[in-house]
């Protein structure tokens, strides 16, 4: 009798684990939604308060700015990739050599993987976009050309950031410090990508600085087109600038990688 009781309690505990495991993911999903609603509410009410006294700021009306900010919030994944963490875990576990020996171009492999990650992240954010539409009056453009201009610019911008982060990630070969570099890049992306403030509102000198580093190419430029702040006629010119960025970043990142890879310090594994 006692063994039966014991068995029931043991198997009962095993049974009870399963709903807990399922619930953990469910909980994250719902918690994530609420957290995003909180962030969007703050952005929305903050910008409403900013516009309380003036109708137009730096040529932008209230609706335009709020639309830009909410779209930038939604498309934030465009401006970041996991290359630094990827390099870091490869170094830590000694996988770098394996990857380099494979008959696949290491950089191309990473590009495809990071692209897949961004696509997945943006797709998973779609419920947030819908909440933005229903709760905060976010207007999603319906014009096909706008979307086309945005998609081209987003792809180019992602590529700029890919090569730029590739360049930065090469520093991990020398420092073996990964976490600090990753957090530094994330923190800078937050502001310099134009996710928090439209570039038009920045003072001249600050905008100069922001545009002399690549972050804005990945978010402020494509979202400017999508939100209608930037006229569509500017798109070809902006694409060319982005392509110039890609070429420049591609050259310096490839050169640096060639030099840095000789320095690899494997941390074990």
């Amino acid at each position: 009798m006692q063994t039966l009781q014991r068995r029931v309690s043991v198997y009962g505990a095993l049974l009870a684990m399963i709903p807990k495991m399922f619930m953990a993911y469910q909980l994250w999903f719902w918690a994530g939604l609420v957290m995003n609603v909180i962030s969007m509410s703050i952005l929305y009410f903050f910008w409403n308060a900013v516009y309380a006294e003036s109708g137009v700021i730096s040529g932008l009306a209230r609706e335009q700015t709020i639309n830009y900010i909410l779209l930038a919030f939604f498309f934030m994944p465009l401006a970041s990739n996991d290359l630094v963490w990827e390099f870091g875990s490869n170094l830590r576990e000694g996988l770098m050599v394996h990857h380099l020996l494979r008959p696949v171009n290491f950089q191309a492999m990473n590009y495809v993987q990071q692209f897949g990650a961004v696509l997945t992240r943006v797709t998973l954010q779609i419920p947030i976009l819908l909440l933005g539409v229903f709760l905060f009056g976010l207007k999603i453009p319906t014009d096909l050309m706008t979307w086309l201009a945005f998609l081209v610019s987003a792809l180019l911008g992602f590529t700029v950031m890919f090569f730029f982060t590739w360049f930065l990630a090469c520093f991990t070969f020398y420092t073996t410090e990964i976490w600090g570099l990753g957090v530094l890049i994330e923190g800078m992306t937050f502001f310099l990508s134009g996710a928090l403030v439209p570039l038009a509102m920045m003072p001249e000198w600050l905008r100069g600085i922001v545009l002399s580093v690549p972050f804005a190419q990945a978010l402020a430029v494509p979202i400017g087109l999508l939100s209608g702040i930037t006229p569509l006629g500017d798109a070809p010119r902006l694409w060319l600038i982005q392509i110039a960025w890609i070429i420049g970043m591609w050259i310096i990142s490839t050169l640096f990688f060639r030099v840095a890879v000789r320095k690899i310090t494997v941390q074990g594994g």
Partner: peptide, 19 residues
């Protein structure tokens, strides 16, 4: 660094409006 980003954004915005 993270706090710096947020504060920089508030600073930029409040360059444009008095309050």
């Amino acid at each position: 660094i993270w706090q710096g980003s947020s504060i920089a954004a508030v600073w930029v915005v409040m360059q444009n409006v008095p309050s």
